[in-house]
Design a binder for these strands. Structure first.
Lengths: 89, 89
DNA sequence: ACTCTAATTAGATAATTTTCTAAATATGAG
DNA sequence: CTCATATTTAGAAAATTATCTAATTAGAGT
């Protein structure tokens, strides 16, 4: 896990909102993009950063790409900062 | 707590390293700055962002400023992302 | 008051990130 | 194969962030 990429990905409010939306369940790129007042290419770049950080995984269904939240990377990254010695929650 | 400021503060590797150093205990601005190959003014800007996010608190002792880690803000912010599905940061 | 040390603030520039429009890619339907 | 839909990639401009040097503020001691 590239911790730098994870925290860099978490630094933008739009990307954190994407993760929050995905907590309710998987969603297509288009459906996610429609939740924001930004263009689809812009959202696509945000998706790319979340993918690079492995905070989301993607699966193709027909012409759509379905994004899934990857909770474990979040837990690892955030847990890493909270406890260097006491890693157990 | 301004969640945006917290995550923005956490996005830079130098600032995360500062927090890690402070886990061992409080430290002066100068001692912290000496751990990096950056100028003191640059580190001072990083300290400022950590202060704004309330991830650290500062106390004056003589001519020195002593920085302390504020663990609870870290827990709140990170817990917020991991936590309930209806949470909107 | 003067000086020394510690740290921050100001101002400028460099580097990075975000966003857009236009073009390209991938998939399924006819 | 062609067309339409869904999404990403490319390239450029705008906005933000990081960094430096120089100047400033703050406290302690002489």
């Amino acid at each position: 896990m590239r911790i730098n990429r994870v925290f860099e990905a978490l630094s933008h409010p739009v990307r954190r909102q994407i993760l929050t939306l995905l907590k309710a369940g998987p969603m297509s790129a288009g459906d996610l993009a429609n939740q924001f007042e930004l263009t689809k290419p812009t959202l696509s770049v945000h998706f790319g950063k979340l993918r690079e950080a492995e905070l989301v995984a993607v699966e193709r269904r027909g012409t759509s790409l379905i994004y899934h939240l990857n909770m474990s990377i979040l837990e690892e990254a955030l847990g890493g900062l909270l406890g260097a010695k006491d890693q157990t929650p």
